[in-house]
């Protein structure tokens, strides 16, 4: 079959091989040195790139990763996993969310616990007056949770709940705002099953 010949003239962008003098177009390989006075070129090895290769012995990874893999799906799979530990959230924010999601359960089970929270808040407020400069350590916060008896409950029930994984800061007296903060916070998108908590300059509150 006869194939039509390709077009000879077309207004296309110039390639690296077109035009003779006074025109230079490279392939963006980068500068690796400098031109000398006499038209030569001296390589400066400080400008050269070094490709770091990890130790690939006994590695199960292959060099090819499909571009279609969505890291968010990996995140979802991690959430379904039983070993998944969600990011820390305020216990109170979680219960407030529960209250809004299913008010019946809240009225029967959680009223008593909210009293405990109120007590703990009082203690924390006293502590914060005593040591106003120091923030409560996360371990100490855990201990207070244990003393109330909510530690197990907190860890089991937050596994399924995605929205409460967002960080929320508890401000006593602003429960409505707090709930909104806890719920509408953006989901963390990460392939890491247990994302490390971000360290911020803000003081960590006990709940």
């Amino acid at each position: 079959m006869v194939r039509p010949s390709t077009a000879l003239s077309a207004r296309l962008r110039l390639t690296t091989k077109q035009v003779n003098g006074g025109y230079y177009k490279g392939n963006r390989t980068g500068s690796m040195g400098a031109h000398t006075e006499w038209g030569g070129y001296v390589i400066d090895y400080r400008k050269a790139r070094n490709y770091n290769c990890p130790d690939l012995k006994d590695s199960r990874l292959t060099p090819f990763v499909s571009a279609q893999i969505d890291p968010r799906n990996l995140d979802r799979a991690a959430r379904d996993d039983t070993t998944y530990i969600p990011g820390r959230s305020s216990g109170r924010a979680f219960i407030e969310a529960w209250k809004n999601d299913s008010p019946d359960e809240y009225s029967t089970k959680l009223d008593k616990w909210m009293l405990y929270f109120a007590q703990a808040e009082k203690i924390a407020a006293q502590q914060s007056i005593e040591h106003s400069a120091e923030a409560l350590e996360p371990e100490e916060a855990d201990k207070t949770m244990e003393s109330i008896g909510l530690e197990d409950h907190y860890h089991i029930d937050t596994q399924g709940d995605k929205d409460t994984t967002a960080e929320a800061e508890d401000v006593p007296g602003e429960s409505g705002r707090l709930w909104r903060k806890g719920i509408t916070g953006q989901r963390k998108i990460s392939s890491n099953p247990a994302p490390p908590q971000q360290e911020t300059d803000q003081r960590r509150q006990p709940y």
């Binding site: 090895y45 050269a48 790139r49």
Partner: peptide, 11 residues
């Protein structure tokens, strides 16, 4: 003269 550590690193 220029060790690999002091070149541009690509990871």
């Amino acid at each position: 003269n220029v060790p690999l550590e002091l070149r541009k690193q690509v990871f």
